[in-house]
Nucleic acid binder design. Structure first.
Lengths: 227, 227
DNA sequence: CATCAAGCGGATATGGAATATCCGCTTGCC
DNA sequence: GGCAAGCGGATATTCCATATCCGCTTGATG
């Protein structure tokens, strides 16, 4: 199985006219912005508008939204893979674990679309799944190495990092506006729960939210009602 | 005996005919089932069908879905309040903390609608908010008591229980089908991160998911695509 | 047991939102 | 200068949830 040899969408088509190619780029950049900012729910019409081109142009270049997502987000997921590799390569096994979680979450922090992609089993099916499968063994390696070094509890499992990441991403999403870094507080708590070194407590990196703020976060959601 | 004048929702209405009152009950029971099972996204039409009555009947009794939700879920939220009170009354301050988290999550575990209600700031506005405000001080008490007793880390905050609950509810929802109890594993990890007693590790209550299972969970979501 | 308002069912109208197309006009390219 | 390629964006299409309407049925009442 080889990677797509042609640089990008050119395939067997006659090359795009200069203006058309430029518009394609503007569309991709607009999509990138919007996905990061608002998540994958933006419409192709939104993207066209944001790019300053007509809807028709958008639909002439991309059959549908998934095609745009695929074009953009496989590369983003590959970024997660890089983080995992870096983490696995970290000389200190414990730092590796921390590095992976912090890195993966930081990426999602800057890109809501990526977060949705990673944590929702919905869009951008095939290619993203493939990346996920490439990442899994690296995570296993990170965890096994830390266990072997005795720095994490022996009953920790590779899948635990995935689910903790999932859990924290929810906190992240929900507090993104009011307290964008709050998720790091809970990451720290979790890390203190998996370390073998039980002597010291990590200093929590973020202050907790006040009652008032908590109430606001749990109350004013921006996620649209289904109804 | 008869003549239950304005005891509940009747207001200034003449009392319902016997069959109509029965249907109203069936509708509420059906709604309760469906909310618990499928969450708040079910339609009033769904509810009517499940209750074995026509759609018209449903709309004659309830102006819209929110009215049904309000009728049912304020009481469910009150259940959470009870759990908080029990927890605050637990003789052991540490057990109180555990009790609250386990209890709140267990309630959500059996009722998807309740989970959505608690964690989504969307539907059933006014009354649920009010309950939330009644719960907040109890949670504060639980946490403060535990801190005073020295059983949890001093930098723990009342709001932390809320956000941990939020984080875990995501795991719970995502694994409900394949591994309904998995969330308890992560609850245990968090608890180990919160305790002051750093000598022992809690035995994790649930086995971790295999790679295969993890992949399945992260892949086959049932949450509808926005697209 | 006759009467009739209250209640019922469910086909269907309404509304809204996202997706996708069409067509008259413009523009890069040879 | 000619014309295929490209463009804009109004609009058709699809889908789905919400809500209504109306001819038929039924419980309550005298």
């Amino acid at each position: 199985m080889y990677r797509d040899d042609m640089s990008d969408g050119d395939r067997a088509h006659p090359p795009l006219r200069k203006d058309a190619a430029a518009n394609r780029e503007r569309l991709l950049r607009a999509a990138s912005d919007l996905f990061a900012e608002r998540g994958l729910e933006v419409t192709l019409n939104d993207i066209a508008h944001h790019a300053g081109v007509g809807v028709g142009t958008a639909y002439r270049r991309f059959a549908n939204k998934e095609e745009v997502i695929d074009a953009l987000l496989e590369e983003r997921m590959a970024g997660v893979e890089d983080v995992a590799r870096e983490a696995a390569a970290d000389p200190d096994p414990w730092d590796g674990v921390v590095h992976f979680l912090e890195g993966a979450l930081a990426l999602q922090h800057g890109d809501r679309g990526l977060a949705e992609m990673m944590n929702n089993p919905v869009l951008g099916d095939a290619r993203v799944d493939e990346v996920r499968e490439r990442i899994a063994p690296i995570v296993t390696e990170i965890v096994e190495r830390a266990k072997a070094a005795g720095v994490v509890r022996p009953d920790l499992d590779q899948s635990d990092l995935i689910f903790v990441q999932l859990a924290l991403s929810t906190v992240m999403e929900r507090t993104q506006v009011l307290a964008p870094d709050l998720y790091r507080r809970y990451l720290a708590l979790f890390l203190d729960g998996i370390r073998t070194d039980r002597e010291t407590l990590t200093t929590l990196p973020t202050r907790a939210l006040s009652s008032q703020e908590t109430h606001e976060v749990m109350t004013r959601g921006r996620r649209r009602a289904r109804s």
